[in-house]
Nucleic acid binder design. Structure first.
Length: 357
DNA sequence: GTCCCGGTTG
DNA sequence: CAACCGGGAC
């Protein structure tokens, strides 16, 4: 099948099936960029409300650039991959303060922006500026590998390169943005990962995978995820209406988000036995009113299974001064309910806080 | 429960 | 090239 026939069929399918999404039918690079960052590693249904909230809070890149980091992170709460939010803000500031508020217009320049890789640069360049550069996301891998029978490993650097080159050989010079949207939408709705309805597909006759019975095995992806088990002992320490929190550091999950003081064990046994590691320390600084064992939460991520046990310590108001000293010596913070609400927390912590009362 | 999905970065 | 998150399908 020639590139022209392929793109024509994809575009025709798109004209019949395209979803009406708020970031379509705009050429505004800010809106396109925002939607693409949110949609990285994220389904449309999950990202849509976040997109709307960001756009409502920050109608322009200037608004976002001038917003406090804490607010940017809080708006991202629950969406995952929090480095995207940090990069979003850093990029907004760069564009506002360095680029004079004007988005760069070419793939070459766009790809230099923080949080903008090959895919996102191609999306912005083609959607906003009509540059004929192919987007290659998970949808495109799937469509091209099946239709044209490309069996290269999409998890490897070399495989990705082959798909990128192939995709760029297909892209029509007129309306490349429309075509890019079309092939991704085709992958998202028609050529879906599992059990696609090939009978209704306009490319069925000429599709390699369909003809060879290889729909279930293409695209080929080598990755094997090794899941790490972790055991968190959390101390939920409250004093009056205030809560002890700490900000998570670099080099681990939930970077920059807020959770509670914790001890991590390597064995489940330790988690079950070592209940009150914080008890002694807290007991030293003042009287603990109540200690309540909460049940253990199992938090499943792709690469980690986290077993989190929460113990709630209620510290007497009379020991507040001592608690404050301990909190600051450990690099923690004692915050009121309003502040706690305003900070970005991981889903696990939100689950606990919601269930706790 | 288990498996699967997905862009960028250090 | 491994690490980063959460949700949805089955």
């Amino acid at each position: 099948m020639s590139p022209e026939v392929f793109s024509d069929r994809i575009l025709e399918w798109y004209s019949l099936h395209k979803r009406d999404l708020p970031w379509r039918n705009t050429q505004n690079p800010y809106i396109i960029w925002l939607s693409e960052i949110i949609l990285q590693q994220t389904r449309v249904a999950q990202g849509l409300p976040y997109f709307e909230r960001y756009l409502e809070n920050y109608p322009s890149i200037q608004d976002m650039a001038l917003a406090p980091e804490e607010e940017i992170m809080r708006l991202w709460q629950g969406l995952g991959y929090y480095s995207r939010a940090r990069n979003l803000h850093a990029c907004a500031k760069d564009i506002h303060f360095i680029y004079g508020g004007v988005f760069p217009e070419s793939f070459q320049e766009l790809v230099k922006l923080k949080g903008v890789g090959n895919y996102t640069a191609a999306a912005i360049a083609s959607f906003a500026f009509g540059e004929p550069v192919a987007v290659v996301d998970g949808n495109v891998f799937r469509v091209l590998s099946r239709v044209f029978g490309i069996a290269e490993d999409i998890a490897s650097t070399g495989g990705k390169k082959i798909f990128e080159n192939f995709a760029n050989g297909l892209i029509p010079k007129q309306n490349p943005g429309e075509y890019n949207q079309a092939i991704m939408e085709f992958g998202a709705l028609q050529c879906i990962p599992k059990s696609p309805d090939c009978a209704s597909c306009p490319l069925n006759q000429s599709c390699f995978a369909s003809n060879k019975g290889m729909v279930a095995v293409l695209p080929f992806k080598s990755k094997k995820v090794k899941v790490k088990e972790r055991y968190f002992q959390y101390a939920h320490i409250i004093c009056g209406g205030d809560t002890v929190i700490r900000q998570r550091g670099e080099g681990d999950i939930w970077q920059g988000l807020f959770d509670f003081p914790l001890v991590e064990y390597s064995e489940n046994r330790e988690l079950e036995e070592g209940n009150h590691l914080f008890f002694e320390e807290l007991d030293k600084i003042g009287t603990i009113d109540v200690v309540i064992d909460q049940h253990t939460f199992k938090h499943i991520l792709t690469h980690q299974r986290i077993f989190a046990k929460f113990v709630r310590f209620e510290v007497k108001e009379s020991a507040r001064t001592e608690l404050e000293a301990w909190v600051s010596s450990r690099g923690y913070q004692l915050v009121d309910a309003e502040k706690l609400e305003a900070l970005a927390k991981p889903r696990l912590i939100l689950k606990y806080l919601n269930e706790e009362k």
